[in-house]
């Protein structure tokens, strides 16, 4: 560890490149905490957005017009308004109204800023996932579904064994794009003072006045995070790939 720190100190002394997180354990701690929070934010938002997408796509197949219209309205709304304003709406508008009395008698927010960020991002990405899953389901050929009925599968069995496995494969490339975008969108939590990667980095560069260095570290960190996600998605896609198609 010390040799790494010595390297970064040398970098600063000799070349004037001040990467404080390389030699200052306090800054490094801050940075790693921020990184960890960004990972948490991403993982939770990805999870809930997939849930929202799955439920949305399922509801979109509902025989009830009103349910389909509501899901359609939800998708249309979240796709055509800025995510930052959505986030503000949740945190500053709903968050201010939704408060509960605490033991001390003071009004406490029901949901933390981190919580609102997760909710907001999940709905935003979930709206897109709804559309992605729905078109994946629609792209499963009708004749394949018919063959399944002809073999005695029920509607639910057909959905579970035939439609979903195919729809997931069809959706995967678009889904990957959307999830990558979601990870990038987590930076918006900065605006709610959630101490994620961008926020702690901004603190570090205002304390240490090493904007240039921290900026580059930050950009590389995000590119790295995205690369990890892309790699995972790629592995998944590969695991699901069916031999004999398009080889």
């Amino acid at each position: 560890m010390t040799s790494v720190e010595a390297f970064f100190e040398m970098l600063y002394d000799v070349h004037g490149i001040n990467v404080t997180i390389g030699y200052d354990s306090w800054d490094r701690g801050q940075f790693l905490d921020g990184l960890w929070l960004t990972v948490q934010l991403s993982v939770l938002s990805i999870f809930f957005s997939l849930l929202v997408g799955a439920i949305g796509a399922w509801a979109q197949g509902s025989p009830l017009r009103i349910i389909r219209a509501l899901v359609g309205g939800f998708v249309t709304f979240f796709r055509n308004t800025p995510p930052l304003v959505q986030l503000y709406f949740f945190f500053f508008a709903l968050g201010t109204v939704l408060r509960i009395e605490s033991d001390t008698g003071l009004a406490q927010p029901l949901v933390s800023n981190f919580g609102w960020a997760v909710i907001s991002f999940s709905l935003f990405a979930g709206a897109m996932n709804t559309e992605i899953f729905r078109s994946g389901i629609e792209a499963v050929p009708n004749s394949t579904i018919e063959a399944s009925y002809a073999m005695g599968f029920t509607r639910l069995q057909t959905y579970i064994y035939i439609v979903l496995p195919l729809a997931i494969r069809i959706s995967l490339p678009s889904l990957g794009t959307n999830l990558v975008n979601l990870v990038k969108t987590t930076t918006l939590a900065y605006a709610l003072a959630v101490p994620e990667l961008l926020y702690v980095s901004a603190q570090i560069w205002s304390d240490q006045l090493n904007v240039r260095e921290m900026m580059n570290v930050l950009l590389l960190s995000y590119v790295g995070l995205v690369a990890i996600l892309v790699w995972i998605l790629h592995r998944w896609e590969k695991a699901l790939r069916i031999p004999g198609f398009g080889g």
Binding site: P141, S143, T144, S148, Y149, Y161, I162, I242
Partner: peptide, 19 residues
């Protein structure tokens, strides 16, 4: 289900499950 157990069907486009 009872009917489809008794009657098998083969289609023009095979319709195998690709996965």
């Amino acid at each position: 289900l009872e009917l489809r157990k008794k009657v098998g069907m083969v289609f023009q486009q095979y319709n195998l499950f690709p996965h």
